[in-house]
Nucleic acid binder design. Structure first.
Lengths: 349, 349
DNA sequence: TTGAAAGCGCTACCAG
DNA sequence: CTGGTAGCGCTTTCAA
């Protein structure tokens, strides 16, 4: 089923059929009607491959993320996609599962598709892959890639200041034994975020004991990480998680052991995904404006209508802390405070 | 950057370059090396559009789902995708957000892409769209579409028996005032599942009062639905939800009102997504084998290697009930039982 | 307003 | 084992 069959049936040339598809006003009404009828009768669908081959241009944007299972990524994609649709673009998403090999495959596939732009929303980008990307001469944007390249948009969140505020808060609440939960990155020996935690907590006070564990991103990974911490004998008064998703897993494991949050142990997340309000107890976390990031991603990839001065290529996104129910004052060395001492706090809807 | 440039640089014909790309063994080692080097130096990426145009075949499968935000769908896609990759296929996913208009767009886009097969994992399929699909002559599989067509694979879960078991269980626990929470489908006046609930509960006993409310699929929708039920004055002893995702939202709203689950009110989900074990309290739900469905989806779309007898085109998937912490005996007409009466139950990991 | 025809980049077949 | 070449289905001049 192709243009030619439609053309034959409508008794016009293929050029005319093409016109009614791409620029209907350029065709006489009666002719157009005849063509549209033929299209309808034949249930014709234009071949996208032929179209982009011939046209030499693509209205497809590529987005590569680390873990579609983590709602954080979907939230970003969702708004980027809605922007895209509004401007006549399609979005194709690939998932790497934090695997470098899969990242390489995905990048190649996207380039093979001749996407009009490519977003890499992956934790930690391998510098060796960057050259491949710049050579493609299409708009590229990184989020969270911890690497910056000339000519490539780079969106990062200010993880460090977010972490510092969280740590300050906990420290002021008397916490002096903290554990950090992060996930594998497979791209660097110590995750950038783990490193930030370590550095920030060290700078805060020499009297804070800390440890960190790593597991797979996800609910199960969070629970496993909590298990590891608790079984290690470290006995923290607070557990900080690299993201909300893992924190929910941590919460579950603590509950399983009848540890109360926050009376026995405080827990924090990061991201402020919707789930952080729906878990129990609701998570104290750091808000990352995912909608804004989604818009930024689209803006970076879509060619600007008016050639206005290109905005800066580097963005450092601010965050803010959201206090909910999962944090409270540190218990006194093993002496569990009465539950009345739990700080009353509004759980913001 | 195209085949020709590579060919020129490697001093071979385009045919040879094409061979090293698709059938390397057919090319002499030294020539192959020369070509590969040229590819490398030029950072050449084959044009997928040209490729599928010329080859006339596509290794891409399309999957359309209702709501990527609901983990249920991702779980299915994940295994279908892994099967696909193992067999050299790619998967492209589209999300309809339960909007019919978006469904139509997505179908058209998939057909335009000339996908080798198309899965529709959407709640309730509009019969009027089916013709468009069958006319495409590619393998099609429906999940949950509540419509069956000759020549199209159809996977359905036995929602009715799952619902009946759930209702039996609750009924035996003394529940006689139940509310059902479902989501909009936009495709039929009353959702198929809501209808099943109504029918099944009526058949079970004439002494059960029930109501049902509808809201958007998701955490917020679940909470809003719970709000509506609670504010209606109906005062149910149990709330059954169309899926786990919404049930988690219900749980949150009950907690906000200091209603205890299951002492004051029982809650059930459906699907048995991972989250149902991580929420609080862990959900009593009905297990749907998502992995099996994912495999089935891939099998339906991928051409069989050996032309073995095509298996039946209709599948009715069995489910089983998973009892966790969110259900218990019905409270006695407003008299809240002592918490000691709560049935001891194992929370299965 | 419409038609003819030259590609777009690649595959696949036929020769050599 | 390699090259030449005819399409794949569509867009886009250029003419008419």
């Amino acid at each position: 089923m192709n243009l030619e069959e439609v053309a034959r049936r409508a008794k016009v040339s293929t050029a005319t059929v093409s016109r009614v598809l791409n620029n209907p006003e350029a065709v006489k009404v009666t002719t157009r009607a005849r063509v549209n009828q033929a299209i309808e009768e034949l249930k014709y669908h234009p071949n996208l491959h032929a179209r982009s081959l011939a046209g030499g241009k693509s209205r497809t944007l590529g987005v590569i993320v680390s873990n579609m299972e983590n709602p954080f990524f979907f939230d970003v994609i969702k708004v980027a996609e809605s922007d895209a649709h509004a401007r006549g673009y399609e979005i194709v998403v690939a998932n790497t599962d934090y695997r470098r090999e899969q990242l390489v495959r995905s990048i190649q596939l996207m380039l093979a598709r001749r996407v009009a732009g490519l977003a890499l929303i992956v934790s930690e980008m391998d510098p060796s892959l960057v050259h491949e990307l710049t050579a493609s001469h299409i708009p590229i944007v990184f989020y969270d890639a911890f690497t910056s390249e000339p000519g490539i948009w780079n969106i990062q969140i200010d993880y460090e200041s977010g972490m510092r505020r969280l740590l300050d808060h906990l420290h002021r609440s008397g916490h002096a034994r903290m554990a950090f939960v992060s996930h594998h990155s497979n791209l660097s020996p110590m995750g950038v975020r783990e490193e930030i935690f370590t550095r920030t907590v060290s700078a805060l006070s020499p009297h804070i004991d800390f440890m960190s564990v790593t597991n797979v991103d996800g609910l199960d990974g969070g629970a496993a990480a909590a298990r590891e911490i608790l079984d290690s004998g470290f006995d923290p008064t607070a557990i900080l998680c690299v993201n909300d998703f893992m924190a929910v897993g941590v919460l579950r494991e603590l509950r399983r052991r009848d540890l109360r949050v926050p009376e026995d142990i405080s827990v924090t997340g990061f991201d402020d995904i919707k789930l952080s309000q729906y878990c129990y107890p609701a998570l104290t976390t750091v808000h990352i404006p995912r909608g804004r990031i989604g818009h930024l991603v689209f803006d970076a990839l879509a060619p600007k209508p008016d050639a206005q001065p290109q905005p800066a290529h580097e963005f450092l996104i601010d965050t803010h802390t959201v206090l909910r129910e999962s944090t409270g004052p540190a218990r006194n060395n093993g002496v569990v405070p009465a539950s009345g001492s739990r700080a009353a706090r509004q759980d913001r809807q």
